[in-house]
Amino acid sequence: MLLIEDLKVKLGKREILRHIDLEIRPGETHILFGPNGSGKTSLLMTIMGYPQYKVVSGKITFKGEDITHMSINERAELGIGMSYQRPPSIQGLKTRQLIDICCNNGGDTEALAEELNFSEFLGRDINVGFSGGEIKKSELLQLMAQDPDLYLFDEPESGVDLENISLIGNTINHLLRKNLHSTADKSKKEVVKERPKMGLIITHTGFILDYVTADRGQVLYNGVLACRSNPSAIFRQIKDEGYGECVRCAI
């Protein structure tokens, strides 16, 4: 479980997140909406542990451990993984090598790449000259290889063509084990137990909602979380009325 309590975060001198309370239970996937610059990426980076996002007060707990001041790699080890909106490119580091690193000897790089139709990119330097859509696939591939327990997706489908959106959407749904359902001999509770994966997905387009059955939606507005509700309902409201309504909830 991920538990964030009354978190306040500063970036430089600026307070970019305030009063953040968030709870993602095993098996749950949350969707994060919010206008440009509202602090969505900052929230994910803070959960991942980027030190420039300074936690001024509040607490982040993951799997029962206080991770508020843990290093990035310790969090990765504990099972947090992130797909970046704008990852850096690294000259000379082949995509294959990075996927191998993510696999940590536990996965088959070639097979995973095959699944995403990404094999031909394995020999290229990571993110160097990748198109917008290619970056999304490369990020997803890294997360697949890592297979963390908490998946943080920063706009996984922005700039992706329609055909690949379904590939990416279905893959995410699969990674989060959202395709498992209760059956005659397994109760809902048992299914959830087999499906401990958690997700937090940022989206502007809402396309991802067509593929991933999300449990909850939230809107981040000006550094404050508002509007805890059904993701599709939130998305409809944003589409119809813009973020204007959220201002009222955020106050």
């Binding site: 000259q91 580091l93 990075l98 690193i101």
Partner: peptide, 24 residues
Amino acid sequence: YYLMSRGLTEEEATATIVRGFLNV
């Protein structure tokens, strides 16, 4: 940081980047 978030320690991440730098 990017590589650390994929599970490498700071030293391992640095070494990996250096190796990439020299991999022409």
